[in-house]
Structure formats: C-alpha cells, structure tokens
Design a protein around this nucleic acid. Structure first.
Length: 194
DNA sequence: ATTAAGATGCGCT
DNA sequence: GCGCATCTTAATA
C-alpha cells in the first residue's frame, strides 16, 4: 500500500482554522535517530497573526517567530517553559503568519507494544509527542515535502471532529474563547485537560 | 542588564 | 486536583 505524501499546496490555504480541523485524522511521519515513526493526528489548535494567542500577533517578527512568516509547509518547533518542544505546521503564504499546533497523536508505526496502549499516554500532549517522535529544535523550518517530517492521507475513513477552546492561553483575552482546538471524537489519545 | 511570564508535564496528596 | 520545576524569550512588569 502506497501512502501519498500531502502536496505542499495543501498548506497554503488561507483558512488556518479549517486546515486545523482537516489535519485531524492525517498521519504524521518522522524520521530521526529513533527510526521511522508515525501516528494519527487526533488533536490540533489553530493560531493566526489576527489574534492574540499567536506568537506572531500583530505581525510581531522576532528571531523566534520568523518561521511563521515563511511560506506554508514547513515545521515550526520552539521550546516552551524551557523544557518542552512544541511542534507546529506553518500554513498560508509568505508574510501571513499562521500555524497549526499538533497537540496529540495516536502512535502507529515504530513504537513499542507498551507505547501503543492508550494508558501509556506516550503522545498525549504537545511536549510529549515531540519527545516521543524525536522532534527537536533542529527540525525548525524544515520543509514537510522532505523525507524527515511529512504527512500522508489517513488509511481508513475520516474521523468525527469536535471543536473546543484552546488551552493555556488565558492571556489572550477574548481570543482565548475561540473554538480553535480540534479533537478526534472519542479518542483516548487527546490530552485530558478541557 | 535584568526579569516576568509562558501554546507544559510531572509528581505528590 | 494542585503546585512546582526549569529556561528561553522579549519586555523593561
């Protein structure tokens, strides 16, 4: 069975919220020292320069947010709380800073049997999934059309997706109430907090 | 130069 | 369920 890599034009859509929803159910592949690992995306969040939750709100360009302003289809990895690597997919065209944060996946290829149990919670959280897949700062800005990190269409049929409020961005004021978080319905792999 | 705060996760109760 | 570790970033709190 051949899994087709998503074309780069997929990431250039102007509607980051619709894209975040569509990404739930896609399969994420990563090749690192840990080998080739993959998982089904079950939780995402949308971020846009139009709202305060985003690092690049009001087109704030810094050394850290630079990748967000680049053409869609690249990875944006940064360190949060000095400990956790958070993996985002940059979307939209150049200078329109938008991204989708991958918050949780369901392990598929390259994991130990123990880790494939939902109770392991090995990938249920943005920091944990990056660690489990071996994603680090060295993956920042790499293109998703290369054979390091890429997405494929899901093998099975589409999943039911539920919208909810984003997590951990109370400082964003009104924008914190946006229903820009998308989770796979009934999946045991989504991060628990609501 | 200094420091407050953060798109979190862990360990303990 | 709650508190804290831990360190980079960006504002100067």
């Amino acid at each position: 069975m051949v899994q087709k890599k998503l074309d780069n034009s997929y990431y250039l859509a102007d509607d980051v919220v619709a894209l975040a929803k569509d990404l739930v159910g896609k399969e994420l592949h990563v090749k690192t020292d840990l080998g080739h690992r993959s998982g089904i995306i079950v939780e995402t969040e949308a971020y846009s320069y139009l709202e305060r939750g985003c690092h690049a709100f009001d087109n704030k360009l810094t050394a850290r947010t630079e990748p967000l302003f680049m053409t869609g289809g690249i990875a944006y990895v940064y360190l949060c709380y000095g400990i956790h690597h958070l993996f985002n997919i940059v979307t939209n065209i150049e200078d329109k800073a938008e991204a989708v944060l991958i918050r949780a996946i369901q392990p598929n290829l390259g994991f130990d049997p123990e880790e494939l149990k939902p109770s392991s919670r090995i990938t249920s959280g943005p920091g944990k999934l990056s660690k489990a897949l071996g994603i680090g700062l060295n993956h920042n800005k790499i293109s998703l059309t290369e054979d390091t990190i890429w997405l494929t269409e899901p093998v099975g049929n589409s999943m039911d997706v539920v919208a909810s409020k984003r997590i951990g961005i109370d400082y964003a004021g009104e924008d914190a109430n946006l229903l820009w978080r998308f989770t796979a319905k009934n999946s045991p792999w989504v991060s628990k907090k609501m």
